[in-house]
Design a protein around this nucleic acid. Structure first.
Length: 508
RNA sequence: GAUUCCGUAGCUCAGCCGGUAGAGCACUUGACUUUUAAUCAAGGGGCCCUGGGUUCGAAUCCCAGCGGAAUCACCA
């Protein structure tokens, strides 16, 4: 094992600490009474609570000035300065704890616990005056030290030696999280998005459920799956590309509302908006339709935006996006007509091909009517949908799991929510007519026979469930990663996943 | 998968009209009891991504590979 000079020094320090009879990895708990941010938010001069505080965290900076030192302690809430003086932590004759342990044997990144009182230095910095100090865990690798200084002219923090290499940041996310506080913020927001949605659904009495990830038939969406094998049953299994058909089985079973946050797996390309595993939230509510669902989504996303950013307006790049409802609603055909000037509502497959040619949109022979419309929409309309917009009433060919439109022939009751030019949610009035559902699956089989690799597989057990009867139901799916990208103003999915998929690291 | 760019100290980067390496921070030693990118003095640290080629000589030029990023194509 090759060790750098700095790693050797740290291991050497570890040995010296042990030689002094100090356990560098103590087993017992260390009870903290407060956190850095709590102190900064609540400090008032003379407050008795601030006279005795216990904090723990990483030592992230240390300025030794002879018999006294200033360090910075970083806990889960942020950083606070600590003041350590020799004669305070070593009241007797033995000055080892300060002279040797604190000044020489502690390293940046070590976990320490301190007890002391809070005061303001003469430069006005809130500081913990340390009376007791102990080592909680030794760090053996040097952290990249990121320094910031306030620019006097602009008043903004300038960052020096930032830890920025994306490869290292994603592969060693733990380091990224330690030294880049803005990264930790993104994931706090991600968590808040999920907890806000969960609380909203729970308040309505809907049930959070878990459904199979390993599925014998990969239904519910159009995508290439990951395939695996179960040894005992000696059968192929697929990692789910969607959980829709299982959640509907639970509606058949009698629950009024079910939802699941979960990973989906799709064996397709990777780029800044696609990761092989991603998180979706799917919800199904009985006795509702897609109009109701649009209102529900507006209420939910408005709450999420406020919970995450304190405002319904979210700044995404140079655009201010307002999540306060109601959102614009426009049908797919109207949207295409608005942005191309062409009314395709009465066209057949051959006419649509002609339109694609006219608009210079490349198409393939395997594409059916639904796919062609989807291509035109993706090419000509999507990018214009910046503020939250519902696109409604999709052609039946694209959507084998949605109910036929109550009044418009050839369409289904479906909407997708577009924000900043990207789809983030998809919802239907769910198809609950088992005869129609079987016919739709059979149309998909015909598309598959034409060479459409994304055509949906037929699931006999799901059809059996529908034949027992599913109440009228509306269902919704939201891409949590993309929603998080929007809410945190990130333009890469890797920035909102703790551990994005990477090639295996070469050992060297 | 295609195109372009990148890979030098723990971190951020310079060196690339070929002569075996530099800066700042970090690290080591010393000074300093209210500092804050602390300061001052001295010092150590590098298979310059890997392999091959050209050359007396390659971090530097050429080829291939590996890894990464951006853009495009497919998909959520």
């Amino acid at each position: 094992m090759h060790l750098s000079e700095q790693e050797i020094i740290r291991r050497d320090n570890l040995d010296k600490i042990r030689d002094l009879g100090i356990d560098p990895y103590p087993a017992e708990l260390f009870e903290v009474t407060t956190h850095a941010r709590t102190i900064k938010e609540n400090f008032t001069e003379g407050d008795p609570v601030m006279q005795d505080v216990v904090l723990a965290g990483r030592l992230m900076m240390n300025r030794v000035m002879g018999k006294a030192s200033f360090g910075e302690l970083q806990d889960t809430t942020g950083r606070i300065q600590i003041y350590v003086s020799r004669d305070e932590i070593c009241p007797g004759e033995d000055k080892t704890l300060y002279n040797d342990v604190y000044k020489k044997l502690l390293d940046i990144g070590d976990y320490i616990g301190v007890r002391g009182f809070v005061f303001l230095t003469k430069t006005g910095e809130l500081t913990v005056h340390v009376k007791e100090l102990r080592l909680l865990s030794k760090s053996l690798r040097p952290l990249p030290v990121v320094k910031t200084r306030k620019n006097e002219a602009t008043g903004e923090d300038e960052v020096y030696d930032a830890f920025t290499d994306p490869e290292q940041r994603y592969r060693q996310r733990y380091v990224d999280l330690i030294v880049n506080p803005q990264v930790r913020q993104i994931f706090l927001k991600r968590s808040r998005i999920i907890t806000t949605m969960r609380a909203f659904f729970d308040a309505q009495g809907w049930l959070e459920v878990e459904t199979p990830i390993l599925q014998p038939v990969h239904g519910g969406a159009a995508a290439r799956p990951f395939k695996t094998h179960h040894n005992t049953l000696d059968m192929p299994l697929y990692l789910r590309i969607a959980n829709e058909l299982y959640l509907k089985r639970l509606i058949v079973g009698g629950y009024d509302g079910v939802y699941e946050f979960g990973k989906m797996f799709r064996n397709e390309g990777m780029d800044r908006t696609h990761n092989p595993e991603f998180t979706s939230m799917e919800i199904y509510v009985a006795y509702k339709d897609y109009h109701w669902m649009m209102e529900m989504v507006e209420t939910c996303l408005e709450q999420v935006a406020v919970a995450v950013n304190g405002n319904t307006v979210v700044q995404v790049g140079d655009k201010a996006i307002n999540f306060a409802g109601p959102y614009r609603r426009i049908s797919m055909y109207e949207a295409i007509e608005e942005y191309t000037g062409i009314d395709i509502s009465e066209m057949d497959e051959a006419q649509l091909r002609e339109v694609c040619k006219q608009l210079h949109i490349p198409v393939e022979a395997s594409m059916g009517k639904g796919k062609l419309i989807d291509e035109i929409f993706g090419e000509k309309v999507e990018d214009h949908l910046i503020q939250p917009t519902y696109i409604t009433d999709y052609p039946i060919e694209m959507t084998p799991l949605a109910k036929k439109h109550r009044s418009k022939d050839g369409l289904v009751e479906r909407f997708e929510l577009f924000v900043n030019g990207k789809e983030i949610a998809n919802a239907y009035t769910e198809l609950n007519d088992p005869i129609d559902q079987r016919a739709r699956f059979e149309e998909q089989l015909q598309l598959a026979a034409r060479g459409d690799e994304e055509a949906m597989a037929l699931d006999e057990d799901f059809l059996r469930a529908l034949e027992f009867g599913m109440p009228p139901t509306s269902g919704l799916g939201i891409g949590i990663d993309r929603l998080t990208m929007l809410m945190t103003d990130q333009h890469s999915i890797q920035e909102v996943l703790f551990f994005p998929q990477m090639r295996p690291e070469k050992q060297g």
